[in-house]
Amino acid sequence: MYKIPESVLVVIYTKDLQVLLMERADKPDYWQSVTGSKDAPEEPLSATAVREVREETGIMVADESGAVPLSHLRDWRLSNVYEIYPVWRHRYAPGVTKNTEHVFGLLVPADTRIVLAPREHLQYQWLPYRAAADLCFSPSNAEAILQLPRYLNDS
Rank of each mutant, 00 (worst) to 15 (best):
V87M: 09
P149K: 01
R54W: 13
L116K: 15
S7C: 12
E143N: 06
S7T: 11
S140W: 02
S71E: 10
C136L: 01
S79V: 04
E23V: 02
M22T: 01
H90Q: 12
E6I: 05
T112V: 14
I12F: 04
Q147N: 10
S46C: 03
H72I: 00
R130T: 00
V81F: 02
P139I: 01
S65G: 07
T100C: 14
P128T: 03
E42F: 09
D39I: 11
L116C: 13
P109E: 09
L146K: 04
V10Q: 05
E55I: 02
R113Q: 15
Q147I: 00
A49K: 04
V108M: 09
W126T: 04
D26I: 01
Q125R: 15
G66K: 05
R74Q: 09
D26F: 07
N141M: 05
S138F: 02
D154Q: 10
R77G: 02
A117E: 15
P5M: 02
R54K: 15
E52W: 15
A110R: 15
E42M: 06
Y13K: 07
L152N: 04
A25P: 01
L146M: 07
V108Y: 08
Y30Q: 06
L107A: 07
E42L: 10
Y92R: 11
V34K: 10
I145V: 00
T14L: 11
D26N: 14
P28F: 03
S79W: 12
F104S: 07
